[in-house]
């Protein structure tokens, strides 16, 4: 081993080269990050908007829905232990609908996260499952993406229904004596979603005025 390669010299040399590479490639990463930031933010927004579009037709409101939100504290009626958000849709500055984050706590495999849009008339505009752990192939039909029946997904039966069409005592799955269907072998998932929907509609009707009264970005 010649004197050129002492431990100290080698250390300095390797450290120098390491630093060089690090600076160049970190700069590359940082630059990409800066470059893609607007696109990524737009994508995230677009993701949320698409979900909302699925439960609420864009024609039914004209405000900046995502900016017009109310933050909720823990709300047992909606199953929100940790709080959540409600977005307010307005048409020509008049209240049109509420888009609510709802949790059904009694799924077969734990909590089922939902987004439910309820019109000011108490009519459900749409329901979507945003997160669940139901048995694949058995209980996961509550998510229209997993539902085998693509033309008439199970979750679609809530669209356009209100307490006036279906009474509160009938807002149940058929097995419990209600009107809503369920798939055999997986009553629990359907029951959880149905009951959560009923609670959400009830909450929307009762708290509608209070909710619309809150300032945008405020808390209830």
């Amino acid at each position: 081993m010649s004197a050129r390669y002492t431990a100290a010299r080698t250390s300095v040399r390797t450290a120098g080269i390491m630093v060089l590479f690090t600076v160049v490639f970190t700069a590359l990463m940082s630059a990409t990050f800066e470059l893609t930031r607007p696109a990524i933010e737009a994508s995230a927004l677009e993701g949320k908007m698409r979900l909302i579009r699925e439960v609420l037709p864009p024609s039914s409101y004209d405000n900046m829905l995502l900016d017009d939100s109310v933050t909720l504290g823990p709300t047992p009626e909606l199953g929100l232990d940790q709080g959540g958000h409600i977005y307010r849709a307005r048409l020509a500055d008049q209240p049109a609908a509420l888009v609510m984050e709802v949790v059904a706590p009694d799924g077969y495999a734990g909590r089922i996260q939902l987004v439910i849009a309820v019109g000011v008339d108490g009519r459900v505009s749409g329901v979507r499952v945003t997160g669940h752990r139901e048995t694949p192939g058995l209980g996961d039909y509550i998510d229209p993406n997993k539902d085998r029946n693509k033309s008439q997904p199970w979750i679609g039966q809530f669209s356009g229904v209100s307490f006036t069409d279906v009474g509160t005592e009938k807002w149940k799955v058929k097995r419990d004596g209600g009107t809503f269907t369920y798939r055999s072998g997986a009553t629990i998932s359907a029951r959880a979603v149905t009951n959560a929907t009923a609670r959400a509609v009830d909450y929307a009707i009762r708290q509608r005025d209070a909710l619309f009264a809150v300032q945008a970005g405020g808390r209830l």
């Binding site: 690090t22 990409t32 990050f33 993701g47």
Partner: peptide, 29 residues
């Protein structure tokens, strides 16, 4: 140098992966 080739390789790969990751996030969300 031979001694630090693995960290450098990983650095290069990690940087490129991050770029791809960000690009996917931005354009195929």
């Amino acid at each position: 140098p031979y001694e630090i080739r693995i960290p450098v390789f990983i650095l290069i790969i990690a940087a490129l992966t991050t770029v791809v990751d960000l690009a996917f996030n931005a354009y195929f969300h």
